[in-house]
Design a binder for these strands. Sequence first.
DNA 1: TTGTAGGATGATAGCGCTGTCAATTGCCCC
DNA 2: GGGGCAATTGACAGCGCTATCATCCTACAA
Lengths: 342, 342
Amino acid sequence: MALPRNKSRRVTLDDVATRARVSAVTASRVLRKPEMVSADLRARVDSAVRELAYIPNQLASALASNHTGRIGVIVPSLTNGVFGDYLRALHDVFIPAGFQVLVLNSHYLAGREEKAIATMLGQFPEAMILAGVDQTPQARKSLLQAGIPVVQTMEMTDNPIDINIGLSQREAGYVAARHLFDLGHRHVGQISAPHDARSRQRLEGYLQACAEFQATPMLASTEEPCTVLLGGELLTELLTRWPKVTGLFCGNDNLALGAMFECQRRGIRVPQDLSIMGFNDLEVSACACPSISTIAVPRYEMARRAAEIILEITRGTGKRPKQRRIDLGFKLIARDSTGRAS
Amino acid sequence: MALPRNKSRRVTLDDVATRARVSAVTASRVLRKPEMVSADLRARVDSAVRELAYIPNQLASALASNHTGRIGVIVPSLTNGVFGDYLRALHDVFIPAGFQVLVLNSHYLAGREEKAIATMLGQFPEAMILAGVDQTPQARKSLLQAGIPVVQTMEMTDNPIDINIGLSQREAGYVAARHLFDLGHRHVGQISAPHDARSRQRLEGYLQACAEFQATPMLASTEEPCTVLLGGELLTELLTRWPKVTGLFCGNDNLALGAMFECQRRGIRVPQDLSIMGFNDLEVSACACPSISTIAVPRYEMARRAAEIILEITRGTGKRPKQRRIDLGFKLIARDSTGRAS
DNA sequence: TTGTAGGATGATAGCGCTGTCAATTGCCCC
DNA sequence: GGGGCAATTGACAGCGCTATCATCCTACAA
């Protein structure tokens, strides 16, 4: 006969039940479906729970009920402001609905993402939400096999694993670049950190605009993770090679901010000497001086929709959305950092 | 007799064992302690695992082994750059060590933190890492009862739950304010978002410096979550009430950045007309223009130490650090946003 | 008074895995 | 050739909880 393994025994449901002089099942019900239990017993159990500071063992609960109440989320970065809003939206929907949100970070690496997906699947989430659409074949396979709703977000793809809700990053990049060309700029450069697949898509949009306006693409990029500092460095690199640049499309708002600071340091006036365009509409962009023109992506809305679709499938009648692909679009926000070419 | 509840049965260890013609225990061992199993059986099990695409059920594993391999982390914010570095450090230590890091967000609310702690404890983490030292009594009780290592970080307390590693926020706030007084400023204002306990501590440091220099405290604050935008708004508020301010201590670097932008908008020169001091040394502060003076807190190091202490306790001989309280200090970083009073 | 519907409560049997220990095997050495 | 030992392998009993169904009440109609 095995000895009890938990020396420093944590309080279990049985302890609560014993103290409340009811069966374990009743104690369990008080916690899950209180309306099924008489007021008398409910009060006894409740106070036993409080007195013992009982915390249910979710592991055991999940194992027994085959229902983990978990949603797996993989994002490429936690610090990026974009995912702050994104995660907030997920929490706003899932927490009140009684779900837990588990977040893993892929650090913008496909390999890390594959591993994160495998790890997450081992926790038996009831649905998965992914950023991006470029999962490895192996990851796609496991996801499919798990038989749970999977939502790919942030980008659009013709071949979603399950459900896809996002926007065309390429088109958004095109619109951003086009904004500069439309303002009369003919020497429009681009700086980016294209280890991010979405950043690459935006770059393609920029290249398309260049082709359309018969302008030479002027690029500076880095494989390092994106920071404000890099914005300044990449601008420096760009200006060294192409001093005639009057328009700059930055892969995201942090780079734009860094580029703007670099301009201030060099006495380059924004937008008179250089028009700067960001991407993502982070909080800082609106209140920078000058305020930064950018592309607003509906990241909160996107995550909210993803979460609601999952709730619908999971708890509702299991019905899936009519369309598997939902394009939420984006919005050009013209502010003070971009102006007419002189 | 109950029917099997898992209709869409996922592959279990038994399936693997059956296919490999071994017992479940052996299959389990192949996955956990392969060196204990003969090469022959190991190969059979391995290929069965692959053929069936078996994913171990971590829930069941954790329940049976009383060992979850999880570390619970509660932070007040995910978007704040401070916690980006902090979480990175935790990952850097724990992931290679085979642990999973679960992060929950308390949104700077004691109530949310208490709930997050309860939720986390329900997952049976092997240790908990908390930001701050002001957990509710109820939370303290559960934490104590859980009988796992608990590390409180970011601040110092005389009465730690278990282990405390941080710095004196009050002292750091004092040093920040003092820096302005030392530069000859006599009208030094402070803006902050004191819903954050650490922000309040820094405010106290500021008040202490004011008292010491017989200066009138000049405050503007908000209960809203801290943003760059707020930095500008609070500065406006402050200047309206105290136009003579020449030194400004901001509760954190985001506020400082916002304040700096507001100065640019109003034609206030930094540091000639107004010296601005931030807090935290976020990435942006070093490359802003002008660069922002601030207090650097060893957030990466702090989290790394916390993680290593936990590893030591958990897997090592269970030995605890010699001292329960570790003060890592901070560093004043004087940059271009602060200058001598004229 | 009896029958019965329906709500409240409890007994039982697992969920998928691992700790423990017993059983079996092969091998070496005296 | 037999004893002893280490290396393998397996049987069994839970981990703490919940699904399921049986049981027990109470109330109300006949």
